[in-house]
Amino acid sequence: MKIEECQYCGSKDLTIGHQYAQGCIYPELWGIRLGSPVEHIICKECGSIIYSRVTKIDKFK
């Protein structure tokens, strides 16, 4: 998925941020050590999180 513009303010000044540790996403009924970091596309102009995804999708299969 290619995102080039913030859907909220129209800015094209976007960046990628990663959420680790306590902010990881964990599959239901699985242990904590099996979680995945989350990657966000963030607008540097208004601060909106435009898109999020887990980086280790295999943990959910």
Score class of each variant (00 low, 15 high):
residue 13 D to Q: 08
residue 22 Q to T: 15
residue 57 I to F: 05
residue 18 H to A: 04
residue 58 D to A: 14
residue 52 S to Y: 05
residue 21 A to G: 05
residue 5 E to Y: 02
residue 14 L to Y: 03
residue 57 I to G: 04
residue 55 T to G: 03
residue 22 Q to R: 12
residue 20 Y to F: 15
residue 48 S to W: 02
residue 60 F to C: 02
residue 59 K to H: 10
residue 25 I to L: 10
residue 49 I to Y: 03
residue 58 D to M: 12
residue 5 E to L: 07
residue 49 I to G: 03
residue 47 G to C: 09
residue 44 K to G: 04
residue 59 K to F: 04
residue 18 H to I: 14
residue 20 Y to W: 12
residue 29 L to M: 11
residue 15 T to F: 07
residue 55 T to N: 00
residue 20 Y to P: 03
residue 37 P to T: 14
residue 34 L to M: 08
residue 40 H to K: 14
residue 4 E to D: 11
residue 54 V to L: 07
residue 39 E to M: 08
residue 50 I to Q: 04
residue 34 L to I: 05
residue 30 W to R: 10
residue 41 I to M: 06
residue 43 C to T: 12
residue 36 S to D: 06
residue 50 I to Y: 04
residue 39 E to L: 01
residue 40 H to Q: 06
residue 25 I to S: 15
residue 43 C to Y: 04
residue 18 H to G: 00
residue 26 Y to R: 15
residue 26 Y to N: 07
residue 3 I to C: 12
residue 57 I to S: 06
residue 6 C to R: 00
residue 10 G to R: 06
residue 39 E to T: 03
residue 2 K to N: 07
residue 17 G to I: 06
residue 4 E to L: 09
residue 18 H to D: 00
residue 47 G to E: 03
residue 61 K to Q: 03
residue 49 I to W: 05
residue 20 Y to S: 13
residue 9 C to N: 08
residue 2 K to S: 07
residue 22 Q to I: 12
residue 53 R to C: 08
residue 49 I to S: 07
residue 15 T to Q: 04
residue 43 C to I: 09
residue 54 V to I: 13
residue 27 P to A: 15
residue 1 M to R: 11
residue 35 G to F: 10
residue 28 E to C: 01
residue 6 C to S: 03
residue 23 G to M: 02
residue 43 C to L: 04
residue 25 I to T: 12
residue 28 E to M: 08
residue 36 S to W: 03
residue 51 Y to F: 13
residue 16 I to K: 09
residue 24 C to A: 08
residue 14 L to M: 04
residue 55 T to D: 02
residue 8 Y to I: 14
residue 39 E to V: 01
residue 28 E to H: 06
residue 26 Y to P: 00
residue 34 L to Y: 15
residue 56 K to Q: 13
residue 29 L to G: 13
residue 48 S to F: 04
residue 11 S to A: 08
residue 52 S to A: 15
residue 58 D to K: 14
residue 13 D to L: 07
residue 10 G to A: 01
residue 21 A to L: 12
residue 30 W to T: 10
residue 36 S to Y: 00
residue 34 L to Q: 11
residue 9 C to P: 06
residue 50 I to V: 10
residue 20 Y to Q: 09
residue 4 E to A: 12
residue 4 E to P: 01
residue 32 I to M: 09
